[in-house]
Design a protein around this nucleic acid. Sequence first.
DNA 1: TGTTAGCACTCACTTAATCAGAGTGCTAAC
DNA 2: GTTAGCACTCTGATTAAGTGAGTGCTAACA
Lengths: 349, 349
Amino acid sequence: MDLNERKLKILQAIIHDFVTTAEPVGSRTLSKKYELGVSPATIRNEMSDLEDMGYLTHPHTSAGRVPSQKAYRLYVNDLMSKYEIPQAEKNAIADELYSNITELDQTIEHAAKILSDITNLTSFAMTPKKDQDVLKFINLLPVDEKTIVLMIVSESGKVSNMTLKLRQGYDEESLSVLSKNMTYAYKGKTISEALTLDIVDTVHNDVSAMNTLKNSVMPSFMKTLEDMLNVNLYMDGLTNIFSIPEYNDIDRAKMFMELIDKKEDFTKTLIQRDDGLLITIGTENDDESMKECSMITATYHVDGKLVGKLGVIGPTRMKYSEISSVIEFLTDNLSNAYRLTGGDDDDDY
Amino acid sequence: MDLNERKLKILQAIIHDFVTTAEPVGSRTLSKKYELGVSPATIRNEMSDLEDMGYLTHPHTSAGRVPSQKAYRLYVNDLMSKYEIPQAEKNAIADELYSNITELDQTIEHAAKILSDITNLTSFAMTPKKDQDVLKFINLLPVDEKTIVLMIVSESGKVSNMTLKLRQGYDEESLSVLSKNMTYAYKGKTISEALTLDIVDTVHNDVSAMNTLKNSVMPSFMKTLEDMLNVNLYMDGLTNIFSIPEYNDIDRAKMFMELIDKKEDFTKTLIQRDDGLLITIGTENDDESMKECSMITATYHVDGKLVGKLGVIGPTRMKYSEISSVIEFLTDNLSNAYRLTGGDDDDDY
DNA sequence: TGTTAGCACTCACTTAATCAGAGTGCTAAC
DNA sequence: GTTAGCACTCTGATTAAGTGAGTGCTAACA
């Protein structure tokens, strides 16, 4: 029994119908709605074959057929045609995306919102991993008697700072020298590298006062570096799931919410995913609680290097083609906006 | 018909029972569970009176009674005794709160988590309003040829910055002078005041190069000031509502989620609330979609000045006494931790 | 040999009916 | 004023019957 053209056509029709209606699709409906050129009886025979081959399932004897995970995978790999976003919609999305492009984080958050609005699913967007971000300089600024501000600037334009309360006073001269020493020691290192550097060897000096100062500053410096590595995860469209028939059951809705609510776990899952456009269906997801969900993600780049992710999660029944296109369009635009300069230019779209 | 002592006792028992069981409470249950010293029949008569007076309602003829909003208000105002948190629990909460006290934002987020864990409700915590925060100094730092970092430090220890890409180069001398001028002009002003200052009058100079520089910097400066005014709202325990009988219905759950999901509106509602411990029950909440919820909030202070808020939202049936105590305990501890120094001391608890 | 019409059969879902249980409200006695 | 007794009400659970969408098989047809 092979997957001839008619079977594929029928399977595609079933997927299309089920994705839009969320109802198991029967042979009569199929023959009425789609131009298949054969009678319901014939379709029934083919459907029966498709079920034997594992592409369809049967909720119960007298219900229509539902595509299996295997069917979706076949569809995504071979059957699905690339969805071309209408130019008008492209413009609308781009306008919306660029309407508020100041800080990277805000833009990313905004992108998630746009994505959930378009797809009516739950969307998420992760700020870039910064482990490969390169340190540019370190500055220690006097604030008052016992307070200084530690500031770390990286190549990507990211500025992190921390206010430090010292146990004792300091002199500005030492502060300035320490800044220079630290910059000298860490400049050009990635954050990951900086975190593993042995401090004692790199920032050395003899003056005792400065040594004290250094000792107060270093732990905060390390802490700030660690903070810089944290990625932010923005989510949007959480309430969209209440409009999805699959989650009309309170227990399922709860399970979904709990999955989403554990942001840290979810971020980890996200980080581990391969780069590029990636569609995972049902049990293809590692996470047990996601075995009835599908996830589509894509990566965007900042300065052509740092990598962030963007995507949606929903029931396996989703419009893979449309959604993939939208996600790719968004990541392309993000990468473009943050190509070199950091996104303050508004003349490159 | 007056609210004699027995009526109050019965009302209190009904509230207590309903708050814990979520089931309408009948006269027999009441007489069995509570030492009221009278028969169910008598209780029935009193209940009937209480209903006439508007303190109880009747879901249907043959159901038990349910406290009305008026009853909860009476309870909160007059009947409720102050709940003393057991010392062991106090210690546990304090330990948990102080276990991770670095940045204010993180602590606030953590406080929300603690609160939702204890109350099994949805909690929220707002970072302080910064409009009364006073500017301390402004710094412009050279990064590279056409890039500078704008940095604003305020009295509260808050440091904000923005990376600026200039259209043309600059010289460090001008940058330094401009920093000093701006600091001179804005130091001691609150953020609100700074935003209304007329720039032209305050930062004046003749050198054309510097003028250009100033013109590039000022919009970003204003933007950064505005950003500083934004408060963050952290929420936690969203999925808790799925365990609450009142929200066992998918539509109610959805309504609740949508209410919560509109973070901006919710933040506004929160900002408008009076300071101090505040309990609003049902229709006492301005928001239409909250007319079946109660909200308890309290304020904490940073440096004895800046004001943030913390609280829970849930069904009108909640443990007002316990929850109020926990919220007060948390805000007291927060205010204490950020009394003067900014929370880096870990020796004041 | 593939396709189709016809028909019996299955199963979920809906509506109606019955029943048990919890609770009230009234009355009359204490 | 309090209480026991009892009829009455209403909900929620359970059961039964009916409906309809859909399948799967068989036999006829091209």
